[in-house]
Amino acid sequence: MNLIVKKYSTPFITGLFVVSAISGTALFFHWMPGLFHSMHTWLSMVLLVPFVAHVWRNWAQFMLYFRNSSMLVACGACLLAAGGFMVMTGHAGGNPAQRLFPVLTHAPLTTLAPLLHASPDELADRLVHAGYHVQSTDETLEQIAMDARQRPNDVLLKILPHGSGHRH
């Protein structure tokens, strides 16, 4: 086990760090977030495995860094920065879309129509065209999803306008 850690931990840390740096930069600049988000999240978690193995193998040498005040200053600055971001940007509920979707999926098509710049019948037609059964424009997306054994969020995505740059 020690040989595997010695031979592979640093190369994997390096490779996964490069992937994390590139995907993190792409996410920061909003370049194709759908392409990079899952990759960044999962491979950053995978990066922890060789990192922990590397620290474990080099524990004695790692602890020597803490004799130097620069390590303590760097760690303190990082913790302060992280805390500052948590205080300034943190909010209960996480992603706003995750809080908005349940509100939208519990609304009837008649209520959603003005928000989506469509008539209730247009929304019903979009859903029928997507393979859903719509009995009434008074139905909620949650009801339509339950009848189709689908997730309400998936049904919502079917009625959202496609394409970017729409001006209403």
Score class of each variant (00 low, 15 high):
Ala26Gln: 07
His30Ala: 15
Leu35Ala: 11
Phe12Arg: 02
Met39Ser: 08
Gly34Lys: 09
Pro11His: 12
Ile13His: 03
His40Trp: 04
Phe28Arg: 08
Phe36Gln: 02
Phe12Thr: 10
Thr25Asp: 02
Lys7Cys: 05
Leu16Glu: 05
Met45Phe: 02
Lys7Gly: 00
Met32Trp: 02
Ser23Phe: 01
Leu43Trp: 03
Phe17Asn: 07
Ser44Trp: 03
His37Phe: 04
Ala26Gly: 08
Phe28Asp: 07
Phe28Ile: 05
Val46Thr: 12
Met45Ala: 14
His37Thr: 14
Ser20Tyr: 03
Ile22Ser: 07
Phe17Gln: 08
Phe36Asn: 02
Val19Ala: 12
His37Ile: 09
Ser9Pro: 01
Thr25Trp: 06
Ala26Ser: 10
Met45Arg: 07
Ile4Tyr: 15
Leu35Val: 10
Thr14Gln: 10
Ser38Pro: 06
Leu27Glu: 03
Gly34His: 06
Ile13Thr: 07
Leu16Met: 12
Ile22Cys: 06
Val19Tyr: 04
Leu35Trp: 00
Ser38Ala: 13
Ser9Asn: 11
Phe36Gly: 02
Phe17Asp: 06
Met1Cys: 14
Val5Pro: 00
Lys7Ser: 13
Gly34Cys: 08
Thr14Asn: 04
Gly15Arg: 06
Pro33Tyr: 01
Met39Leu: 15
Ser20Thr: 14
His37Met: 13
Gly34Ala: 09
Met45Ile: 08
Gly24Lys: 04
Ser38Val: 09
Thr25Gly: 07
Lys6Ile: 00
Gly15Glu: 11
Gly34Met: 10
Thr25Ala: 13
Leu35Cys: 03
Pro33Asp: 03
Leu16Lys: 02
Val46Asp: 07
Leu16Asp: 06
Val5Asn: 03
Ile4Met: 12
Val18Asp: 09
Gly24Asn: 07
Lys6Gly: 12
Gly15Leu: 15
Met32Pro: 01
Leu43Ile: 10
Leu27Trp: 00
Gly34Leu: 05
Phe17Cys: 08
Leu47Arg: 02
Ala26Leu: 12
Ser23Gly: 09
Ala26Pro: 02
Phe12Cys: 14
Ala26Met: 13
Pro33Ile: 00
Ser23Gln: 04
Met39Ala: 13
Ile4Lys: 08
His40Thr: 13
Leu3Met: 10
Ile4Trp: 14
His30Ser: 14
Ser44His: 01
Phe12Asn: 11
Thr10Trp: 00
Met32Gly: 09
Gly34Pro: 00
Met39Val: 15
Leu3Cys: 05
Val18Gln: 06
Leu47Tyr: 05
Val19Ser: 09
Leu16His: 00
Trp42Met: 10
Ala26His: 00
